[in-house]
Design a protein around this nucleic acid. Structure first.
Lengths: 152, 152
DNA sequence: TAATCTGGTTTTAAAATGCAACCTAATTCG
DNA sequence: CGAATTAGGTTGCATTTTAAAACCAGATTA
């Protein structure tokens, strides 16, 4: 049967996963953040089939995560660039990357070394923080009221 | 053909997606963070088919994101609980939720209202921060050297 | 003791994936 | 200039995944 979709779910995580929650989309976004813009470059870097790549790019453009920009003189060269919405996935991608580095490190020691352009210092681990900037774990937070089944 | 796997990828995002990057796994983790522990509760809350749920739970247990705890007197009641590794996905899930709330809000105004248990104040948006705690956008950071094709 | 709950496994279909082949327009190379 | 290559796809086909429903066995409850 068809994969279940969550377009109308009242859980925003479900709706977010609907847009970027498949195997390739987040990797495409990651590479776009690293600077990749062209169809063939995504294809080569990711090792993804052309039809799947085309489908994902189209869907990401439809969802306004990427936008397709015509860069050819005679209109046959394109670039896929992150929109503001797409760039806003930065914390998600970095948090996921840090999680992967922490829990499934590769011997090769290719930990993410992301640095502040202004100071050259490494960025901090992404955390959920209270109003004062102190990191919070899941045990430190609660959701006021919310009947329970609202998040399915 | 089979879905491509990235177990051996030297990109930790790819490897992370291998563990939690499908449609259901992150939703299961989200609900586990909200307190769900039992097979039937996941089933009912998510509206997921039993076979898929079983498969995902097994895989999450294999990957040590969840652990299966025997809570029955005669060994037939189980709970699936987040491990530390699973709890560590908290920033990822919250960042994704905030992104969804921001870019695909639902009229119903069910924005995430997550509060610090100690103070009752709302948590901050998840951001990537420099060493001083200032938020950074993707344009503010760089990756030192890294030949380029290392992240596929 | 019967009914129900829990936690699954087993079919069976529709759909998604991946590969290879093909295709057209533009660009580069000799 | 002509030929080869590049960019950006589309199409067909075999293989997997998925989802739904049926079924099932061991506890628990009525």
């Amino acid at each position: 049967m068809a994969r279940k979709r969550f377009d109308d779910s009242n859980c925003s995580v479900a709706r977010a996963l609907n847009e970027v929650g498949d195997w390739w989309s987040l990797l495409i976004i990651l590479h776009a953040m690293y600077g990749t813009r062209r169809f063939v470059d995504f294809e080569r870097q990711l090792g993804i089939a052309k039809n799947i790549l085309g489908d994902r790019l189209t869907r990401l453009v439809d969802n306004r995560v990427l936008r397709k920009v015509d860069v050819g003189e005679h209109g046959s060269r394109f670039e896929y660039r992150l929109t503001e919405k797409g760039q806003d996935l930065f914390p998600v991608v970095i948090a996921l990357r840090q999680w992967g580095d922490k829990w499934n490190p590769v011997s090769d020691e290719s930990q993410l070394d992301l640095r502040d352009r202004a100071t050259g210092r490494a960025v901090q681990p992404v955390t959920v923080q209270d109003a004062d900037g102190n990191p919070l774990t899941i045990r430190d937070v609660f959701v006021p009221d919310e009947p329970g089944t609202k998040t399915a």
